[in-house]
Write a protein that binds this DNA or RNA. Structure first.
Lengths: 205, 205
DNA sequence: TGCGGTAGATTGACTGGTCAATCAACCGCC
DNA sequence: GGCGGTTGATTGACCAGTCAATCTACCGCA
């Protein structure tokens, strides 16, 4: 009775979220007014407030929806018994594919949340750190198994890993790097390759 | 005649800049009002507009002052004939020392400019890219000299390098990592060590 | 089958507050 | 007396969030 009877409302809510992604990607969070979102969604101003408590809540919803996918994928990868390099590679690939699949949403998440340490980054720090944490644990396991050198702090690596990948995505977002399918493939492989080589034990070390 | 005769004006200008650093670091650029800067500097509201065209101009001045130091240091390092690893290490150290020497200013630059791709990051992209570029050139030289593997795109490395270091600084800025002198040393060494190892040619490769 | 009744969806004008920037006046030294 | 430095009240734009009104779809009852 409660679910599925009225279809329209769900669509409008979705329309608002989708519109918000487009507008945030185009103008940035701070310089989009709520009216812009409503216009883009073809909906009255007030309706945004019917579905969301505030402009901020719209952003939070967008972030949480997507980030939880990343977290789930990371956890699944961690639980599996692939070699560490493959796990890291899987995470990198997931992020890059997310970008390939929906560049505007990823642009918004990176620019306005993940790298926006003063605004949303602060609010969502715990969830963001959870993602770093999976990487740290993969590296720590690698060290325990003697694959990775021990002098490197796993927590640092978690941060570098994301720092490097986000910077890469930023390169695409702002057109500093060509965003062809080929480049996407190469880039992901390269980050992991380089990072892993740096982490692995060497003959003499 | 021009310099040093009237001391007061210069001091007030400086006081405004220094106050701005403190306030921006504390509250972030967007939520500091010009009145906050004036108050912190112990100066009348209007005087800020006497010395700077706008609130944005204050931020720009802060960024440019410091970033040009980094650029100069990078160029000097690049021109020298140290091995590539030492050059990269020098850049990393310079950035980390900048943070150690003036954490508030570096916090502001990283949070509000370097990683704020939507606001100031966009405005100052050219200068920011110049810094990446030096790293790219060092890597490219390393490849030419057969020290670094060739499959890695130097432009990517420039971005990773900064991505990783900024993420590290963010760790300190937001207290995710202990910010002791010892940690500063370790961290810088580790970034370069890991990155360089990843870049270097291996026996079989 | 038709008729109020109700809940939720939808609308957009309006309010209240915030703040960057301006400006006219003032001060004190040469 | 004039000029650079200094003051802070004022202005005017901007915008998130509110709210009262309207609309639509469905329900139960006769």
């Amino acid at each position: 009775m409660a679910e599925g009877v009225r279809a329209a409302p769900v669509d409008k809510r979705r329309a608002i979220l989708d519109a918000a992604v487009r507008v945030f990607a185009r103008q940035g969070y701070h310089s989009t007014r709520v009216a812009d979102i409503a216009d883009e969604a073809g909906v009255a101003y007030g309706l945004v407030y019917h579905y969301f408590r505030s402009k901020e809540a719209v952003m939070t919803e967008l972030f949480t929806e997507r980030w939880s996918l990343l977290l789930d994928a990371s956890d699944a990868l961690y639980e599996g018994d692939l070699p560490p390099r493959e796990k890291l590679s899987g995470i990198a690939r997931f992020i890059i594919d997310s970008y390939r699949h929906d560049p505007e949403l990823m642009k918004v998440i990176i620019v306005e949340v993940t790298r926006a340490a003063n605004s949303f980054g602060a609010t969502h720090l715990p969830e963001i750190r959870r993602a770093y944490d999976v990487v740290s644990r993969i590296v720590a396991d690698g060290q325990r198994d003697g694959v990775y050198r021990e002098e490197v702090d796993p927590d640092f690596v978690g941060m570098w890993f994301y720092g490097a990948i986000e910077q890469l995505l930023s390169g695409w977002v702002f057109g500093l790097i060509p965003a062809t399918d080929e480049e996407f493939e190469r880039a992901g492989a390269m980050v992991v390759e380089t990072l892993c080589c740096g982490l692995e034990r060497r003959d003499g070390t």
